[in-house]
Every structure is written in structure tokens, then in C-alpha cells.
Amino acid sequence: MNELATDAIELLILEASNRFSLKFIPIPCLKDGRQGTFGARLRRVGQLDSIRDEHLADVSTWFQDQGYLFTYQKTTAYSCAIIGKPTEPVLVGYHATPSDKVERIKEQGLRAKTASDATDRHDTIGNVYVSATFEDACWWQEHLAGIRREQHSIICVDLSSYQQVLYLDPFSQTGYAIRADIAREYIRTKDHYGTT
């Protein structure tokens, strides 16, 4: 991460610490995370174990208003990742999805994860994830098919109208997170790819 980006994130973290009574304890960048990701454990200032998901939703919205993606997870403690936007426009992405959902996606579009969808993966709430290349999406297709024991397909997504809500994915070297639902007219069903 360049020095200006580091300074900008440090200033934002200082402001967020004061605004939300949070302490950001830096941790080494996440394993296989994208270069430039700021990772931290979270603590409430003066209040032990009082962080709530609703509180972090407000923090996430505030960081998004500042031009950054704030995602969090809870395992034994809350941790977060903060990252900015791509430096160049990203016009196309590829999304691996269960094959039985492709028809619904063609009709309704691609929906961002909700809290009830996310289970233990709080970092996915409010996001749609895409890969930058078809090859990377193929890796996800195989990976997810193995984990979930169901066939997955790859769909192509036109991102031209989503630049304002498009962020780098802190957990992937080549992926992106879109902080919005993707309308059906931006799903390229003609470019729908096979299943595994």
C-alpha cells in the first residue's frame, strides 16, 4: 500500500475510533488477503465485549460513505478488514453460484447477502462477490461445489453501472465486492457458463 493510502486509512481509523468508541488493534494482513488491506481486532473502549452486529453495521455504512469497504467477522473476537476502491474501472465480473439459483437470478437479479443468509460469515453481509477473471471464477466454482456438495455455475456480470459501490475484496487477490444488489439487466445470461 502506498504511503498516502496508509495515511488516509490511519486517519479514518482514528476518526472511527472516536466516533464509534472502538479500538482498532492492528493484526498482520489476512492470510491470502489483498495487498493494501488493513486488518484489526476490534474492542469497545471502556466496555468489555459489548460490540453488537447492529453497531458494526453503522460502522460499515460510515466507512462506505468515506469510500472504503469495512467488513467484519466474529470468531473468538471481532476482527475487521478495511480496503478501498479499484484504481481503474472494472466493467465485467464473474460470479460462481449454485446452479439451481441461475433461473431465479435471471428473473430477479443477484441479491447481496443478508444477515440471515450469512450465518457465521458476517463479512459477506450486504455484498455480492465477483472474480476479475473467468479463470478465477472457475476456481471458486470448483471450491464452492466441493464445500457445499452441489453443482455451481458461473454467470457474467456487467459492472459498468456499479462503480460507486464497487470495492476491492480484502480476502482475495483478484476479486471485488459490490455493496448492492445486481439488477437482472446486468446479468449476462447469454454468457452463462457450465457447471461442475
Rank of each mutant, 00 (worst) to 15 (best):
S160V: 03
A180L: 04
S161M: 09
D181G: 11
Y186C: 15
I155Y: 09
S160N: 08
A180P: 01
E185N: 10
S161T: 07
S153P: 10
Y186M: 14
D158Q: 14
A183D: 13
L159I: 07
T174P: 00
G175I: 06
G175P: 01
Q151F: 01
S160M: 07
F171H: 11
D181I: 05
R188Q: 13
Y167V: 00
E185V: 08
A183P: 01
L166M: 05
T174N: 14
L166Y: 01
T189G: 12
Q173M: 12
A177C: 14
S172D: 14
A177W: 03
H152Q: 04
Y186P: 00
R179N: 13
P170A: 01
Q173R: 15
A177N: 06
S160C: 09
A177S: 10
S153N: 10
Y167S: 10
S153Y: 05
P170Q: 01
T174D: 08
K190F: 02
Y186W: 13
C156T: 15
D158W: 14
C156I: 05
I182L: 08
Y186L: 10
R184I: 10
E185A: 13
D169Y: 05
D191C: 04
V157Y: 13
I182E: 06
I182A: 09
T174M: 05
H152L: 02
E185I: 11
Y162W: 06
L168K: 04
D158V: 11
V157F: 09
D158E: 12
S160G: 08
I182S: 08
Y167C: 02
F171L: 08
I154S: 04
E185C: 07
I178R: 11
L166Q: 03
A180M: 02
D181F: 01
A183V: 12
H152F: 12
G175S: 04
Y162E: 00
I178D: 03
L166V: 14
I155G: 05
S161G: 08
Q163E: 07
I187C: 08
I154Y: 09
